[in-house]
Write a protein that binds this DNA or RNA. Structure first.
Length: 823
RNA sequence: GCCGGGGUGGCGAAAUUGGCGAGACGCGAGGGACUUAAAAUCCCUUGGGGGGUGACCCCCGUGUGGGUUCGAUUCCCACCCCCGGCACCA
């Protein structure tokens, strides 16, 4: 790919010695990178700095390919926000680190035949070089690398906190197994039956796994969302994921069983219980064995075996419904009728009670099943214009309406019916109102190598023993055969010299847990670590944490709307409950940035449309590139990356440079220019905190046009305030210009220019005059002019008056804006 | 199917408690100045259509079709298309 050449540069000769100093980003940017490093400009006094502002951005996975434009877009947007707040007088902490554990790193290492422990440092070095080149205001004294034992020591510590609280537990579970990555995947890492990372079809396996009881926190995780200042899309995604649904648990007595068993179902439609014509148990439901009639046992067992073989995902995505009758019957507690109990895989064991009451009249899935197996379908809800006898016409009726064929509940609306039926059943001990959440526990086990070992030891005598905190970290050993195999067991399990340890409790020979933890655990607490990085005796320093957290503003991609952000909230809540944090929500304000696309498609290696920022940074300079990325479109919407527009931004910086270089202290400031200047200061100061970067840049460009109109030479006071305005976007040139204007200290310590509101309003305003809705001219009037006076002034204009024929029927005045004369 | 976010010039986009002649700002395009020439720079024009020698004038335009209003990109109803997320969760 060929880049367009920036104006006045490179190929077309050097500036002649007698010509005025031209803007050369390469020189300017190198100079300020060096000065910032020497002066420690980006170093933060966390203990004493006034008005702390914790500006967080999502830390990257340091890939071998280096930073891509999407990363840079996000980081730049966050950096601008941070720099702006610094100019506003805050002490801004802007840390950045590396999320370097996980399957990405490991798979890449396997592919190129190198060890991740060797790969990561060079990847990080390359990232660091690019990030510095981009001019981020990062305090590198407090960075994290999740693969550093000094960091994952505390990740393991976090695990132990949960373990001790009973929030970490082990269970055998049917899991999603990716045969290509050779690992277990969380449900959320499965997309449409295939592995999110490699696209391989996922199969079902049973493995012993560690889980975190996040489901216990579902109500709080949901409720607290109301208090958070987050992008609405992100909050909505979390609400959907947590999946609250209100309903009832209802018990159906099984007929003719010695143990007087009951089937407990969860339903959101207790109002339709009179239409429940059969029950369905999930194939894994423990009652199946108990209640199945001997005559049906063979077919039911065969059906269950088939379901167990099928992978979780294809089972969920299969359209046609299958099932088997158990031969058993239950009593509908509302009607007293005997209804058959079936087994079918469209009912999931992991949700609700693993059993449902089927109401084929008013549930599409039940309807489909009932049609397939010839089960009775009864109408118990009638919509408008319908009654009990209206046929169901080939489909379930799921709309609102009145209850029918429901005994004393006939005539009630659906929502009153739900409450009334639940109360009635509850009185008879057959039901209670319950709330269910779709959120399931977080599986953190990974049968892989590249992660922090889970700090657990198994002892024949003592059972499961947590590694004592004093023995952390459990270091990940450097092994050469880290490739996972098909056994479902971690590569660490092949290293007896590592996993064989003495039990910390009794000293007997014991073995370590050989699974490592999920990368999402590494990133679920990293923001707590940044301020406390120098401390190796605690995960986070109490005083610094109190001073700096929760995070003031977090900016990141919405691809982490659910997992990372939810897990971080959960871990924070748990640490709060343990008395280790005095807040329970980690991110006060979260904003999701948009996605940078190219030629209408998401950038990806497979599409070959990935843009490497290095060449742009070299050719145009970091300042132009940063500003250009923000000028593409609204930050929260992203945009289409094309290199065509970058020259406009560069020209803007060239003009700014020339204006400062050539400005004069003679004469006075032009009043019109001053008016525009103050309006610009106001607009930029309002747009940046709202992340309206594109319009802030446009406003500054507009001001430059006014400033330089007709090739006028501008006054120093006209151009000086622009330097801090532009500094957040183009920090290097701003520093250089600030120095050219005679300042010895950083522009970022100079403060934000103030505007004078009095200069924004003028004695008269232009009022648009419409006649019958058509604009016919403007008049200059005082801002608070009366309607009569405005009308008189308008009629005094011949160009307007000629359209006013006869007496005005109606006159509308919008103060300061327009006058409409209706004739 | 459900839940979000969007459809505005050749392109990226501005402007929505309804109101300052829709399209700021930038790209691209056209014309001009400067130059031996080019690059760079600067100036002018640039939504579509039509009329006038000209200052200018008229009509149509914010996905589609209706509606409310003196006035709608903005509000209401119905629909179409694009992007993202969820999806047998009872």
């Amino acid at each position: 790919m060929r880049l367009p050449l920036p104006p006045g540069s490179l190929a077309f000769g050097m500036t002649a010695p007698d010509e005025p100093l031209a803007y050369d980003p390469a020189t300017v940017e190198a100079r300020w990178r060096q000065r910032w490093a020497e002066r420690g400009t980006n170093r933060v006094d966390l203990a004493n700095g006034p008005r702390p502002y914790y500006n967080l951005m999502m830390f990257p996975y340091p890939s071998a390919e280096g930073l891509h434009v999407g990363n840079l877009f996000a980081f730049t947007g966050s950096d601008i926000h941070a720099r702006f707040h610094r100019l506003q007088g805050h002490t801004v902490f802007e840390p950045l680190g590396y999320d370097a554990f996980g399957i990405h790193s490991e798979n890449f290492a396997l592919k190129v035949g190198k060890h991740p422990m060797e790969l990561i440092p060079s990847n990080i070095a390359n990232f660091r070089r690019q990030l510095d080149r981009a001019g981020l205001m990062v305090d590198w004294d407090r960075s994290v690398d999740t693969t550093d034992p000094a960091y994952y020591k505390w990740t393991q510590w976090v695990f132990l906190q949960l373990y001790q609280r009973g929030l970490a537990y082990k269970k055998a579970a049917a899991v999603n197994w990716c045969g290509s990555c050779k690992t277990v995947l969380a449900n959320e890492q499965v997309e449409g039956g295939t592995c999110e990372r490699c696209g391989t079809t996922v199969e079902q396996r049973f493995l012993e796994q560690w889980f975190f009881r996040i489901s216990e926190y579902a109500p709080r995780l949901l409720k607290n969302l109301e208090t958070l200042d987050w992008s609405e899309t992100t909050k909505q995604a979390q609400r959907n994921w947590i999946g609250r649904s209100d309903g009832a648990r209802v018990r159906f007595a099984v007929q003719d069983t010695p143990g007087r068993e009951t089937v407990e179902v969860f339903t959101t439609r207790p109002d339709t219980i009179f239409g429940a014509t059969y029950l369905v148990l999930a194939p894994e439901h423990p009652l199946v064995e108990v209640i199945t009639k001997d005559s049906e046992r063979g077919v039911v067992e065969a059906y269950r075996a088939r379901a167990a073989r099928q992978d979780l995902v294809s089972r969920k995505s299969t359209k046609e419904k299958t099932g088997q009758c158990t031969g058993a019957y239950a009593t509908n507690p509302a009607t007293g009728a005997a209804i058959p109990i079936w087994v079918a895989d469209y009912v999931l064991m992991e949700y609700g009670t693993g059993a449902i009451m089927a109401v084929p009249g008013h549930d599409e899935r039940d309807h489909e099943f009932a049609v397939t197996y010839g089960l009775p379908i009864v109408r118990v809800v009638a919509g408008e214009g319908q009654d009990a006898s209206t046929p169901l016409d080939g489909a379930a009726y799921v709309g609102d309406g009145r209850l029918v064929a429901s005994g004393t509940f006939d005539g009630l609306g659906v929502s009153e019916g739900k409450a009334a039926v639940t109360a009635w059943l509850a009185e008879r001990g057959a039901a209670e109102a319950v709330t269910n959440y779709r959120l399931h526990d977080w599986c953190i086990s990974r049968q892989r190598y590249w992660g922090p070992p889970i700090p657990i030891i198994y002892c024949d005598a003592c059972g499961t023993v947590p590694v004592p905190e004093s023995q952390l970290p459990v270091a990940l050993p450097h092994v050469t055969d880290f490739k996972p195999d098909d056994s479902g067991i971690s590569p660490l399990a092949r290293h007896a010299e590592w996993f064989e340890v003495a039990c910390p409790t009794c000293g007997a020979p014991a073995r370590r847990e050989t699974d490592v933890s999920d990368t999402f655990l590494d990133s679920a607490w990293y923001f707590l670590r940044y301020p406390s990085v120098p401390r190796d005796d605690v995960a986070f320093d109490a005083a610094l944490t109190k001073r700096w957290l929760p995070v003031t503003t977090y900016i990141g991609g919405n691809e982490h709307a659910v997992l990372h952000l939810l897990y971080s909230r959960f871990i924070t809540m748990v640490l709060h409950d343990l008395g280790l944090l005095d807040f329970e929500e980690p991110f006060t304000r979260f904003r999701a940035h948009g996605l940078i696309i190219r030629e209408g498609a998401k950038m990806s290696k497979s599409k070959g449309n990935v843009v490497n920022p290095d060449e742009y940074l070299e050719t145009w300079g970091a300042d132009s590139f940063r500003t250009y990325l923000m000028f593409l479109g609204p930050f929260e919407e992203g945009g289409d990356f094309r290199d065509a527009g970058i020259s406009g931004v560069r020209r803007f910086l060239d003009r700014l440079w020339a204006s400062v270089r050539d400005c004069t202290t003679e004469g006075a400031v032009d009043p019109e220019v001053r008016h525009k200047l103050h309006a610009t200061i106001k607009k930029v100061g309002e747009d940046i905190p709202a992340l309206s970067y594109n319009t802030a840049i446009a406003a500054m460009m507009e001001y430059m046009n006014v400033l330089r109109k007709g090739e006028r030479r501008c006054h120093r006071d006209e151009v000086l305030p622009v330097v801090p305005l532009v500094a957040s976007f183009a920090p290097h040139i701003a520093e250089e210009l600030w120095a050219m204007l005679g300042h010895a200290t950083s522009v970022f310590d100079a403060g934000w220019p103030t505007y004078d509101p009095a200069l924004l309003t003028s004695a008269t305003v232009a009022l648009v005059v419409q006649v019958s809705g058509k604009t016919r001219g403007t008049i200059q009037v005082a801002p608070d002019v009366t309607q009569e006076a405005a009308l008189a002034a308008a009629l005094a204009e011949p160009g307007i008056a000629k359209f006013v024929t006869g007496t005005p029927k109606k006159v509308i005045l919008v103060p300061g804006r327009l006058l409409n004369v209706v004739v």
